[in-house]
Write a protein that binds this DNA or RNA. Sequence first.
DNA 1: ATAATTGATGCATGGATCGCAACAAATTCG
DNA 2: CGAATTTGTTGCGATCCATGCATCAATTAT
Lengths: 310, 310
Amino acid sequence: MDRNKFDLEDLRVFSSLATGGRFRAVADEIGMSASALSRQIARLEERLGTRLFNRDTRNVSLTPQGHTLLRLAQQVLNTAANAGAEFDAYLAARRGRLTIAGLPSVTAGLLPSLVARFLARHPDIDVQINDALSDSVIRSVEQGESDLGFTAGAVENSDRISFRTLLSDPFVAVGAAGGILEDRDSCTWRELSEMPLVAMARGTSVRLLIDAACSQQNLPFRPRFEVAHLATAGAFVSQGLGVTALPVLTLPVLSSGNLIYRRLVEPEVLRHVGIIWRAGHVLSPAATAFLDLVRGVDLSSEVPDPFGTG
Amino acid sequence: MDRNKFDLEDLRVFSSLATGGRFRAVADEIGMSASALSRQIARLEERLGTRLFNRDTRNVSLTPQGHTLLRLAQQVLNTAANAGAEFDAYLAARRGRLTIAGLPSVTAGLLPSLVARFLARHPDIDVQINDALSDSVIRSVEQGESDLGFTAGAVENSDRISFRTLLSDPFVAVGAAGGILEDRDSCTWRELSEMPLVAMARGTSVRLLIDAACSQQNLPFRPRFEVAHLATAGAFVSQGLGVTALPVLTLPVLSSGNLIYRRLVEPEVLRHVGIIWRAGHVLSPAATAFLDLVRGVDLSSEVPDPFGTG
DNA sequence: ATAATTGATGCATGGATCGCAACAAATTCG
DNA sequence: CGAATTTGTTGCGATCCATGCATCAATTAT
């Protein structure tokens, strides 16, 4: 084998077409003629020895081969882009860049103090946060888009991802002050399930864990409201429209004017928050430093105690 | 900024020179003239806006910028090489995923040995089986959810689906040992229709074919029991609650403690088991390999002979 | 049925790259 | 001390290869 199979430009063009859909539109978008695009793809297909797109003159779709190449291409392009950015940062005499993906409930509740501590030691590192849902976090790290990721719940500890548990995050019941929770000392899941519920939307890790908890206890789970953002849930609850169950870490996100918290028992449900990174790849110096910092910090002190001195 | 800063070829050449040391030697080694190498490095330096090598006409050494770029270049080249290798492995059907949809009666009776054979040759392919009823199988393949599908009975050989017959699967009568079938040598559909019947639920391919057979013979079909799963049917029959008619391929699924089988004639009803895939689309390498395997195997030996010495 | 849109292709062109050869600097050797 | 040799660079002509335009073939929209 003499010449290597693909080039960054190939992958870029291929990726654009794979996500864009149509030859002409994509060709305009990236500033080349449609024929050039067609030929470039044809060349790439010939070099790879396989067809990447099904094209029947009207529709363009990826073949299975194209799908796998797309996944790989994104990885390569991401690392190349990161390398370019890091090199630029080096030229600009900066130390580097750190990209962290995380669930909104974690990025809001846990990251600020960690990042503050990190920046105290490494003031010249640009930090970028990617808020995303659970599987997006994993994918983002897998593909090298993010250096590190904060996840909750089970992560299949594959050979592509390394995982480390950081802390356990208990669910609590959240209600409006003066509302139905006011006179209680604690609350069981059964009792909660009979109150009007404000639930996070499907696909969020919070919702997944609540679903699992209820089905394990054989409780019906019929939310009165479904919202996408934690702050919205907090607003609904504080207006007395319902109650909800949230991990303690998320509580600082709720603009907690009118909210009260109660222990949620039978069972105690814990969300296991952890950090993930790409296995088998060299971490950037910034990522390594951040990981070391996280390892050396007692994170349980980061979880607020919502029950005052109760 | 239109053009991106570097290309894989740039990084390769740069990396060779960075580790190799001398222009002429490296140029020979990678099969290009010294002048070409010199220009390529000069272009790269210009695009990056910094000098990468100290060259004083006798020695070549990396600048600090060159050192950091070398580290980054190795990362990028590694992921690119890994991606290439992974893609090659995928093309060679050494890695990847194969999703097969199939009727439960086929997936249980026919697939295990086929998949075992396939995995012997392609050990690192993840195989996923979608058990589903007949029309779900076709739909799953049509929509690209499954690569291949095992079906029984007539499949409209549309322009979206390619079909290939694999084997003919005769129906036999199934009864309890010591029961009403014990003293018979064979059994006609007319006789069967007058016995208490355990039937598969509507929507299953087995039920469809039995309905068709009976209506063709102008026989009434009034099942005493209707069950959804083959194992359940087997359990009912083995308890002497009734008899049933099943294709031979399904028999291994019945935990056949107490069952006897008899030829079912007048007419002999055959279920035509076949394999389907998407027409006009490129099959994944794993699917192609599996299809080749299936084509090369004499599947009639896979159908057990239930009439051993009984 | 006609028009329009889409991807593929033939052909000529232009820009980029390459190899050869000459050159400048530096080391080696007579 | 000076000529020869080695090393990286550069000028120039040749070459190659991707591109763009125009056109074709196929399919859909009206």
